[in-house]
Simulated scan of single mutants.
Amino acid sequence: MIPRELLATADVPGGGDPLRLIRRGAEFSIMLGANELMNSRLSGSEEALATLAQARLGGVAKPRVLIGGLGMGFTLRAALTAFGPQAAISVAELVPEIVDWARGPMAHLHQGTLDSAQVQVCVTDVGALIRKGPAQYDAILLDVDNGPDGLSREGNDALYTLAGLAEARAALRPGGVLAVWSSGPDPRFTSRLRKAGFDASEETVRATKSGRGARHTVWIAVRRD
Rank of each mutant, 00 (worst) to 15 (best):
L129D: 00
A170M: 11
D100F: 02
K209A: 14
P3L: 14
R64D: 12
K62F: 07
A48I: 12
L6F: 04
Q120Y: 02
S45Q: 02
T208N: 13
L6S: 09
N35F: 11
P174Y: 03
L57V: 01
L165D: 00
L165P: 02
R77K: 14
R215G: 08
P18T: 01
L42T: 08
C122V: 15
A135P: 00
T217G: 02
A135Q: 12
R24A: 15
A139W: 03
D143E: 15
G211W: 06
Q111T: 15
R212S: 14
R131K: 14
I22G: 00
L32T: 09
E203S: 10
D17R: 13
L94K: 05
S40Y: 03
R212K: 14
A61G: 04
Q86E: 15
G71K: 08
S152C: 12
P96K: 01
Q54L: 01
T204E: 10
V12S: 09
T51E: 04
P105M: 01
E5T: 10
W219K: 10
F189G: 01
P187A: 04
P63Q: 12
S210I: 07
A102V: 10
K209G: 13
G71A: 13
D145Q: 03
M106T: 15
T161L: 07
F189I: 11
L76F: 03
G68Y: 06
F189W: 01
A10K: 09
I220L: 14
P174N: 13
R169I: 02
L80E: 10
A166H: 07
G147W: 01
P18M: 03
V222A: 12
A207D: 06
D145H: 05
W101R: 05
L193P: 00
G14N: 10
R24Y: 01
L37W: 03
I2P: 01
L76R: 01
L7N: 08
G71P: 11
A79Q: 11
A88I: 11
P185F: 00
G184D: 15
A53F: 09
E203I: 15
I30G: 03
L70R: 02
M1S: 14
V218D: 02
G184L: 09
R153D: 04
G84I: 09
P85W: 01
T190R: 07
L151R: 09
A128Y: 02
A139Y: 12
E202R: 13
G127N: 12
L57Y: 12
L109S: 07
F198M: 10
P134Q: 08
M106N: 06
A8V: 00
E97P: 03
I89S: 00
S29T: 15
G211A: 06
L19P: 08
E203V: 15
L6P: 11
G58Q: 02
S201C: 03
L114H: 01
V180A: 04
R23M: 09
I220M: 08
